[in-house]
Design a protein around this nucleic acid. Sequence first.
DNA 1: TTTCCATATTGGTTGGTACCTATCCGAGCG
DNA 2: CGCTCGGATAGGTACCAACCAATATGGAAA
Lengths: 236, 236
Amino acid sequence: MARQAKHEELRQALLAEMAGAEPHSPLPTEREISTRHGVSRNTVRQALDALEASGTVYRVQGAGTFVAPAVVSKSLSLTSFSEDMRERNLEPASRLLAAGTVRAGRQVAEQLGIAPEAEVVRVSRLRLADGSPMCLENVHLPADRVPGLADEDLSGSLYALLSERYRLEIRSAEQVVRAVDLDDTEAALLGVPLGSSGLRVRRVGLDRRDTPVEATTTLYRADRYDIRFTVRRGQS
Amino acid sequence: MARQAKHEELRQALLAEMAGAEPHSPLPTEREISTRHGVSRNTVRQALDALEASGTVYRVQGAGTFVAPAVVSKSLSLTSFSEDMRERNLEPASRLLAAGTVRAGRQVAEQLGIAPEAEVVRVSRLRLADGSPMCLENVHLPADRVPGLADEDLSGSLYALLSERYRLEIRSAEQVVRAVDLDDTEAALLGVPLGSSGLRVRRVGLDRRDTPVEATTTLYRADRYDIRFTVRRGQS
DNA sequence: TTTCCATATTGGTTGGTACCTATCCGAGCG
DNA sequence: CGCTCGGATAGGTACCAACCAATATGGAAA
């Protein structure tokens, strides 16, 4: 048992204890949690650090730790389309538009840090939520890292496939979000009036070593999709 | 001196040392940094934690800590328009469109957690970058927390004013981003063709105790503005 | 009654130690 | 020559102990 770290167990325990608690009600002091759960104060702090980072609690030096008021949006985490939709209580699905090997081209090459003439696998899909179009997705992967990908079943989660079949795990991603006017083809595929606007997300997925392994452009319907996240002070 | 924590000093020291280092080149081991800087490994880890969170380095258990490849976008931090523009090397400016006290109304009341009949100060500004329009900004603040705000100089950074004059510090914010079609008035103010699309950011600013103190809707020109950020795995 | 200050309490920071686990690389075997 | 295995070394987790800094509170003083 206990395949996970102690501070992670404690985090979940505290989360459970806090369920239904009033906003701004105080948690036990760090030292009390420490003795009550039989762990060191350092471990308690690690758990509280995580809870604070996720916006579940806030801390005031000299005063205590308190449960944060209900938040609309959690902090942004890296999710696949499938995960994202399930979180919104929508059933994800896919329609494959195209899949094959092409040359990278200037933009994709720059994003992936490879030569423009290098080959990449391109997967183009229309993604559906509860049966109706949600976004157009265009994924580019270095061809040498995913041999035979175009012949796999591309109707489900690509992230899951990359992880299981190619041991390619995307650990972080850089995203650029922009509002754009859809062209006629895009509008038709998404089932929105001509001239509608859309939300374009350009993502570069990075592996454990911060090396680019995926360049994706996703075009969301403006009327069905938004991006929610929490930002905090305290960086440089 | 040293009004700041030791791990923060160390973080900056490491940042300086890494300046100009090759991507993927290894940092000294944690233990070596520890002895060389005369601090405990605990402190080293705190500094490295921060550097990892900001995407400056990545760590591989059993291998070492390495400088991350140059990133396009840093992780999203909470910035005011003025800070945001300066970071993009643009000169921020403001044109005040309206300022006064109004009733909150349903939406703002819900965002701020107050009654719909409660009074709020509303500040409406056209924000410029290098002299040309960048976005329309609509700020709402609970009237009882910022008495006399409408008579202040509202041409500069509102965040700075709130902090200095009212000791109101916004520590985190929840944002919802959406693509929208601009109406004719908005398009005219922003100086873009009728029917253009825009990027709408709804933000609720929270103070140290996660209590809402600011509700802002900002409408950015789609052709001049994008949002960049880094997301990571490893939450729940 | 009100104000102010000493003090106890809380979270924040730092040092130190021990052990676990993942990774790398070279020695040795097949 | 290639592969495997194991040791050395890296980061990861956990613990203890002490002290610092912000806060809250209650009692003394005005």
